[in-house]
């Protein structure tokens, strides 16, 4: 099982993602100019920034050469995880429904949050238990999930709302407490909190590993 971690100009969490993925499999960095994914079994679009996010978060990165390859990989059912800026990139690319708006407080917030696993019908939560709480850090200024009400209802009905902020933890004002959404097929997941920063008891939680290790049997089965 080999993870590919994208690196855009401005990515800053790709090394943590590389470390986290290497705890459950092999992992390598894929530069944004690459046109093929070198046969990796899963892709992580990491957090940080991409191309400065000068226009809107993720708006430029979606046009990078590597994203064309990621789109094709995702449409063939390949597991893709977008974390924070990576979530914004996947939404801008149309691989995930919705958009991320500035936090209601308009402030950058960095804190540990609890999220509930709402659906385990997703490549990245298959190893979790429905309803279990994961403790992971979140750190962003543009993380308020938005989708029109009708879309949100449809997402809920299809089990695409995979992670929700636990009561009292929706600090950014996300619609329907959504912390993470999947595509209809369940192979692409985006979330604002950072599982790659929750892989060592030293920093308070290892819950992030549950998401990363969920994908290992999925990737093995699709070979």
């Amino acid at each position: 099982m080999r993870f590919g971690i994208l690196r855009f100009p401005g990515s800053c969490d790709e090394r943590d993602a590389l470390h986290a993925a290497s705890l459950v499999g092999e992992a390598e960095i894929l530069w944004h100019q690459e046109r093929d994914l070198r046969g990796v079994d899963a892709v992580i679009v990491p957090g940080g920034f991409s191309y400065g996010d000068h226009l809107r978060a993720g708006a430029i990165a979606r046009f990078s050469p590597v994203m064309a390859a990621v789109e094709a990989f995702a449409r063939e059912g390949g597991p893709v995880l977008g974390i924070c800026n990576g979530f914004q990139v996947l939404c801008e690319a149309g691989l995930l429904p919705g958009a991320l708006l500035p936090n209601l407080s308009l402030r950058f917030v960095c804190r540990q949050v609890e999220v509930e696993v709402v659906s385990t019908d997703c490549a990245w939560t298959r190893g979790c238990t429905g309803g279990e709480r994961l403790s992971v850090p979140a750190k962003h200024q543009t993380g308020r999930y938005y989708a029109p009400d009708a879309v949100l209802e449809e997402l809920r009905a299809n089990d695409q709302v995979v992670l929700a902020y636990a009561p009292g933890h929706n600090f950014n004002g996300s619609a329907g407490d959504v912390a993470g959404v999947a595509n209809a097929a369940g192979n692409v997941l985006g979330l604002m909190p950072h599982p790659e920063h929750a892989v060592d008891a030293l920093t308070g939680s290892t819950d992030g590993l549950k998401l990363l290790s969920s994908v290992v049997p999925v990737a093995a089965a699709s070979r």
Partner: peptide, 8 residues
């Protein structure tokens, strides 16, 4: 395509 996000 780029200047606006028509969803929001």
């Amino acid at each position: 395509a780029l200047l606006a996000n028509p969803l929001i």
